[in-house]
Nucleic acid binder design. Structure first.
Lengths: 156, 156
DNA sequence: GTACGATAGTCAACGTGGTTGACCAAATAG
DNA sequence: CTATTTGGTCAACCACGTTGACTATCGTAC
């Protein structure tokens, strides 16, 4: 039950603050490691592209945005040198989107930093509570938000 | 410790998914209750303006954005009928920003819906785990994100 | 083998939310 | 009274999203 000293709007605020804390820490660290131009969304995009690569349309589905929005995001990351486009030999309509070496480096460093940050939280809260937090969120979050149900997030 | 099956980037993803789940549910319900044009940020802005009102500069500080950005957001909410500007009789430079009746209604309904959503989470997870989740996030989230330390969020 | 519908991508116009820099008017400190 | 600080606005710009229209290609059905 929501008590007066725990109004319901504290919950979204805390979730957002927790998210932003991680993201801010991540990008501070990435900037230190040679990726100062990586912006908050970019990490998720690199993750969603993944090592095997994808297409703009597929990427849009994974991110839960339109193919046009995904295409524009790819444009920016291509300009920054993190992604590259290639033709699909099997289907002339499709344009493959792949990580460049720099993109792969950014993705790997993001993953490593996130792991470190998770460890830092575990050091503060205890590993069991971080795991419980993840379990709880997984139980209540809608799977179609950020398409957690679409393959590509937790795979390769 | 971050194990292979619990990569660190699952944590921000789940936090974001949890946040978006709440926000999406909130706005679906608000649209049903006569506020279809309220957008995700607006609830936080109304909350940050609060019943006593504030100024654009103060609002920017509370939201952690520039005064210009806060001013533009106020413009939009004035156009939608949720906020109104007034002159400060004590200081001709300051322009007070206040909730209109419609704004107050939106704020109250947002708070009520958030309370209901928190109860729904409590029904799924158990009230103690929701409270633990809030406690944990409060312990690790940086207070200057969304200026949780600035008065106006959890007061009137 | 050709015609047609579904699919992949792009272009254009627009809205929203943010930034920085310049500027003005009013308050305040010396 | 002058100089500085403060509150607000304007302008230009960028990131990220939307919808609608359009082109090119693929696959199928006749």
């Amino acid at each position: 039950m929501a008590t007066p000293d725990r109004p319901g709007f504290a919950l979204p605020l805390l979730l957002l603050a927790g998210f932003r804390t991680l993201i801010d820490d991540l990008h501070a660290e990435l900037a230190r490691q040679g990726h100062p131009d990586l912006r908050p969304v970019h990490g998720f995009v690199l993750q969603a592209v993944g090592v095997p690569g994808t297409t703009a349309g597929e990427l849009g589905q994974r991110l839960g945005v339109s193919k046009q929005a995904a295409g524009k995001t790819v444009d920016r990351l291509v300009a920054l040198g993190y992604l590259e486009r290639a033709d699909d030999p099997a289907d002339a309509r499709r344009k493959l989107v792949r990580l460049t070496d720099r993109g792969l480096d950014g993705l790997r460093r993001s993953a490593a930093v996130f792991d470190q940050l998770r460890d830092r939280w575990a050091a503060t809260l205890g590993a069991d509570r971080v795991a419980a937090l993840e379990d709880d969120l997984h139980a209540v979050a809608q799977p179609n938000v950020f398409r957690l149900d679409v393959p590509g997030w937790f795979g390769t």
